[in-house]
């Protein structure tokens, strides 16, 4: 029940955003997070963005894993 999916914020009006996932658009309440910009990915849960996804962290983790395993 704590399911949360990454959606891209494509529009923003005050604390209401429009998120897009797989071509489907829906409203996202942005009041639980700070400083969301259009283009950011957020984790959507029960209508709310509960966190902004850290894209740098996401990419670093994957490239680190790939690097480690290439050396093995």
């Amino acid at each position: 029940m704590c399911l949360g999916i990454p959606v891209k914020i494509v529009e923003k009006k005050g604390s209401v955003g429009i998120g897009e996932i797989g071509g489907v658009k829906r409203e996202v309440d942005l009041r639980l997070v700070n400083n969301v910009k259009v283009g950011d990915y957020v984790i959507l849960h029960a209508g709310f963005a509960i966190q902004v996804l850290d894209e740098k962290e996401a990419e670093e983790m994957l490239s680190l894993l790939r690097e480690v395993f290439e050396r093995l």
């Binding site: 029940m1 704590c2 009041r31 639980l32 849960h45 029960a46 709310f48």
Partner: peptide, 13 residues
């Protein structure tokens, strides 16, 4: 209101 910490803030709002 059923759920854990993930859901609770949305109910608070």
């Amino acid at each position: 209101g059923v759920g854990f910490e993930t859901t609770i803030p949305t109910v608070a709002v």
